[in-house]
Write a protein that binds this DNA or RNA. Structure first.
Length: 867
RNA sequence: GCGGGCGUGGCGGAACUGGCAGACGCGCCGGAUUUAGGUUCCGGUGACGCAAGUCGUGGGGGUUCAAAUCCCUCCGCCCGCACCA
């Protein structure tokens, strides 16, 4: 073995491209659009990337996880579809165009070329022939066809909605472009402005989107819970309040409430600043108008509205209570959302915390109407905490004495009987506004004609292409400004008409790309046989930040596509399995001036302090945070692959922690992973000359050491397999570290041990192959020359008989405290185990001759002796 | 504000259905090898204690023979909130 000891190091830079080419030549990862049925199908998909410039560690993590699944499932005998594409429309391309004068298309396609190259270096088992970008008319033209089919099916509507309006730039701003209520470029105070926009009718599927969550048993429970809350089904009542004196044709206000039982505890009625009645009031009351104007600068995000200080304006109007005949003041309140319910509420401060704070602030009455159980009505008062739980009704006329659920039923009956209200089911979910006043998106394929109204673009005229020559230096909607693009003849009457200049929300692009991947070159949006055979996606992997919107929109889209004949997916569910990965984080660094520094600019010294690489100036090490360009705590995957190879990056990313949690990228961790690749290579290359040939006959007998090694081998196969099935990749890595150590420790001689060593090494290589595919091929070519590619081998099965242990270790507790362990034959009977336990030296000392009251024995695990 | 999640040694984490807390890796300490080392190999490493042992899974309380795991409560951090993707 001495001449082997100086075997050259494993050189990933040389080996990795070689194996990537070998897989490519062998066509290892290709599957037909329509499966031939010889193997069961498995569709693995990672959320496709936005082509922002370079790949980042979040991508590396995402695609490594997916690749492990894809390679593992392929070895398990599945026909695995594993495609890749580009979520290529979006705001950053327009920003780049404005800032650097690059056309969005040029910027996007250049980024795609760069990122494709980076992904290819990772050695992912992707089928690149399915690649597409959503900004390609060959993709978005089909999306326009889907839009038209949805329009024909009544799933598209035009409605008014609020946008963030920059009054200086005359531009609609995205939420992220509004900073502290001001436009990010102009600095002007942003206003809420109503625009007529296109909506997809997701609420038509609200019931099914909610109910079907229960069938998604391979989704994280928390994602299902978040979607459930987002859809927000609630039962309640609509109640109409007559205005004491009508105003501008309004003679009543309708409110929605989930607590109709508390109607007798009413103290005020509050209108949204965006309510039609508010507008009527503001038209004649300058103070009300001023208050509404103030509210309009709060922006359009729910978080902003909800966290703002609760404020109101007393309109001086009053409404009449439906039952007790009293009148109550009408306020305009900044926390009442027009988008939910009816845009008006009745306030019951005793039993709603927000109402209570509002009432205390403005000196409104607080009447308790629900009495907590076991409390005397005389002794019950509401101070600064509203009572929101169930109890018994008081001060409530015909509801007195009823429990909350019965009171709800009773008052709804009464409201319906008297025609003053009705029980309703209310949804929080709103229709999906897809209109965007931007250039770099999919044009909405309709034409506005003065005579014919809204006319769909005939399908044979699709795609409606974006014009190339746009002026992005002007604020506002570039398509609207374009000198010629929007002017067309009406397809119906031929008169001069205008194209719709809004483009679609980029979430539309990502709501059906997984279906397009199944037949990416089809002349229609989907090829039914391909889509029906491959969908649903068996395993979808991506960030938790998409837990609601992207996933919900996709679930809507597959239902709408099914109902317009584009899919046969009966369940309507696009993703049978979902895994949400955590973020990749890194330490942050700042110099004495407080400027952020890249990790490559910082050197760590042995005493733990950090200095600037170039100047030696001290550097402050800050918190571990999500990698971001602004904080410069990013690590370039390309540089890591240059230095250590793709396998090392993949191995570290899998080993650090459970994939659903945030991970910290550390230089020490990568170096540790790299050492392991070299260690495995040494282990294999040093052992090969001593091993029997690949496929040699099994020896008839095995020594104790050989048996022990085989037991470890078969246990490891079982453990790694179980870990891969449950996404416990860090556990699989730990078991493989242990396995490699166990192989190195089995130093004995003999042909039986040599055979067991070959069995172990072959297993090691095949078990880590999904994670480090290049190193696996390199080792395999040494272990089993001419035996093909690991990528084409089937998975290993473990032999339970070989994995079984002869003895088990039992922990022995006395009074719940560990006092010793005993080794007993596997399957020993209880009497034997207890006798051995009580005889154990340390245990006997702890018992000290006292009588044992109770003996608890959990076979194979523990004995607890209670004195 | 609302909804969801997380919290275990110096660090990342492991721990099956409530059954030996700290697997495995990083770091650190000691030793060996090497001309050299960001090399390799061996040993050690939760805290306190000479030891027996005691304490220990964000804080406090509870259930149980037995709790990281179940229940109550408090604290801290993270994600989403509909025009970022």
């Amino acid at each position: 073995m001495d001449q082997i000891a100086d075997t050259a190091r494993y050189d990933p830079a040389q080996a990795e491209p070689r194996w990537q080419q070998a897989w490519e030549r062998a066509g290892c990862f290709a599957v037909p659009d329509v499966p031939d049925g010889t193997r069961p199908k498995y569709y693995v998909l990672e959320m496709f990337p936005y082509p922002s410039g370079r790949i980042h560690m979040g991508h590396v993590r995402n695609y490594t996880l997916g690749d492990v699944v894809a390679r593992y499932k392929r070895a398990r005998g599945f026909a695995v579809m594993h495609p890749m594409g580009w979520d290529a429309f979006g705001l950053p391309a327009e920003n780049a165009a404005r800032e650097r004068g690059i056309h969005p298309a040029t910027w996007t396609w250049d980024n795609i070329a760069t990122m494709r190259g980076e992904l290819k270096r990772m050695g992912l088992s992707l089928e690149w022939s399915r690649e597409f970008a959503t900004c390609d008319p060959a993709y978005y033209g089909h999306q326009q066809a889907l839009f038209l089919d949805f329009l024909a099916a009544g799933l598209v509507e035009r409605k008014e909605a609020f946008v963030n309006w920059d009054p200086v730039d005359h531009t609609v701003l995205a939420n992220e472009q509004v900073i502290d209520g001001r436009g990010w470029r102009s600095g002007a105070v942003v206003e809420r402005k109503k625009l007529s926009q296109w909506f997809l009718s997701i609420t038509k599927y609200a019931d099914d989107l909610l109910a079907a969550l229960d069938t998604l048993d391979r989704w994280p429970e928390r994602v299902r819970t978040m979607q459930r809350n987002w859809i927000g089904r609630s039962e309640g009542a609509r109640v109409r309040f007559a205005l004491a004196s009508p105003i501008d044709g309004h003679d009543s206000v309708e409110v929605f409430t989930t607590r109709p039982d508390t109607l007798f505890g009413m103290s005020f009625l509050a209108l949204s600043p965006d309510h039609p009645l508010t507008a009527a009031i503001a038209a004649r009351d300058p103070k009300a108008a001023a208050f509404v104007q103030e509210c309009s600068t709060l922006g359009t995000t729910e978080a902003a509205l909800e966290t703002a200080e609760k404020r109101g304006h007393d309109t001086g109007l009053t409404v009449r209570h439906p039952f007790n005949g009293r009148t109550y003041p009408v306020w305009i309140a900044n926390f009442v959302l027009m988008e939910y319910g009816t845009g008006a509420i009745f306030g019951c401060p005793a039993h709603d915390q927000r109402d209570l704070e509002f009432a205390r602030k403005y000196g409104l009455s607080v009447t308790p109407v629900v009495l907590p159980k076991g409390i005397d009505a005389a002794g019950f008062a509401v101070a600064d905490t509203a009572f929101t739980e169930d109890g018994t009704l008081i001060n409530s006329d015909f509801l007195d004495g009823l429990e909350v659920p019965a009171a709800k039923r009773r008052i709804i009956e009464e409201l319906e009987r008297t025609g003053q209200g009705t029980g309703v089911v209310q949804w929080r979910l709103r229709d999906w506004g897809v209109s965007r006043q931007r250039y770099w998106g999919c044009p909405i394929p309709v034409i506005h004609c003065d005579a014919c109204g809204i006319v769909p673009v005939p399908k044979d005229q699709l795609p409606v292409r974006l014009p190339d020559d746009v002026d992005l230096s002007r604020p506002g909607n570039p398509l609207d400004h374009h000198p010629t693009w929007k002017h067309v003849a009406c397809p119906r009457c031929g008169a001069p008409a205008r194209r719709e200049t809004d483009t679609m929300d980029t979430f539309v692009d990502s709501s059906w790309y997984f279906a397009r991947f199944t037949a990416p070159h089809a002349a229609t949006p989907t090829h039914r046989a391909a889509a029906d055979a491959w969908l649903p996606v068996d395993q979808y992997i991506g960030g938790i930040e998409h837990a609601i919107l992207h996933l919900l929109y996709s679930r809507f889209f597959t239902r709408a596509m099914r109902d317009t004949g584009h899919l046969g997916l009966a369940s309507g569910e696009p993703f049978a399995g979902l895994f949400t990965q955590g973020m990749v984080k890194h330490e942050t660094y700042r110099d004495a001036q407080g400027r952020w520094l890249y990790p490559t600019e910082v050197a760590k010294r042995p005493d733990g302090t950090a200095v600037h690489v170039g100047t030696g100036a001290p550097v402050t090490v800050g918190a571990v945070e999500a990698m971001s360009k602004s904080k410069r705590n990013t690590v370039d995957p390309g540089a890591i692959i240059d230095r250590y190879g793709a396998d090392t990056a993949r191995w570290f990313i899998l080993s650090d922690n459970p994939p659903e949690r945030d991970m910290e990228w550390t230089e020490a961790g990568v170096a540790g992973a790299y050492r392991f690749t070299q260690r495995v290579w040494r282990l294999v290359s040093a052992a090969v000359p001593t091993l029997p040939p690949h496929g040699a006959a099994v020896p008839t007998t095995f020594s104790g050491e050989a048996r022990a090694l085989r037991r470890t081998t078969h246990r490891t196969i079982a453990a790694v397999t179980a870990a891969l099935e449950t996404f416990a990749f860090n556990v699989a890595v730990a078991r493989l570290y242990e396995f490699a150590s166990a192989i190195a420790d089995a130093k004995g001689e003999g042909t039986d041990l040599a055979w067991a060593r070959r069995e172990a090494l072959e297993a090691l290589v095949r078990l880590f192959a999904p994670a480090m595919p290049h190193l696996a091929e390199e080792c395999w070519s040494l272990l089993a020359p001419g035996a093909g590619l690991v990528a084409q081998l089937s998975w290993l099965d473990h032999d339970p008989a070989l994995a079984a242990a002869d003895t088990v270790t039992i922990a022995v507790q006395v009074m719940g405290r560990l006092r010793g362990t005993i080794e007993v034959p596997a399957g020993a009977d209880e009497a034997t185990v207890l006798a051995a336990a009580e005889a154990e030296e340390n245990v006997a000392r702890a018992i000290a001759g006292r009588p044992i009251r109770k003996r608890i024995h959990v076979p194979g695990k523990i004995v607890n002796l209670v004195l």
